[in-house]
Amino acid sequence: MSTEPSSTADGAPPSAAELQARVEELEETVADLDADDAQQKMTIVATQGTFDMAYPPLILASTAAAFGWDVVVFHTFWGLDILHEEKSQNLQLSAVGNPNMPMPNALAALPGMDRLATRMMENRIDDNGTATIEELIDLSLEQGVDLQACQMTIELMEYDEDDFYDDVTVGVGAATALQHMAESDIQLLV
């Protein structure tokens, strides 16, 4: 859009009608800008697929949707497992190399320790009234959060598009994610 003041070819000042048209054009532009600003946008890139790392993006996304924001969560690499209907039921907490775990690594590395740590966390979540991952996914989708599954990762992991929850967006890549990020007020990498 040109920002030059309109004028006639011979350099004479613009007529009242021309100025009027120009004012109307600018008013429309401002109205469009206001409409664009009315809704906040957030893009989260979810890259992790452990039990504990599945929570932050889902909690923020569902809450942002409650604010009426336009929310996209782009799931890539291990983050894709959060949207995988079967794998999302079985996300694990890693006991090894996790300084928050009350056990030494040598013990944490024993078979079944991840399963045990995950079971303990699941029990605490249940006791605390914290939602399950599946509940948060359903809530997010119900509220119109766009949960996107990176197409490249789907192929890399040899997943099928049918493996994901209904209403998950497939067939999207980095360019789509960047486009949403560029338009977003908030961008997060988890």
Binding site: S62, T63, A66, F67, G129, A131, Q143
Partner: peptide
């Protein structure tokens, strides 16, 4: 009652 973050806000919005 009994539900924790983010449920109170999300359910309030729905309601």
């Amino acid at each position: 009652k009994g539900a924790s973050c983010p449920m109170p806000v999300v359910k309030t919005k729905s309601a």
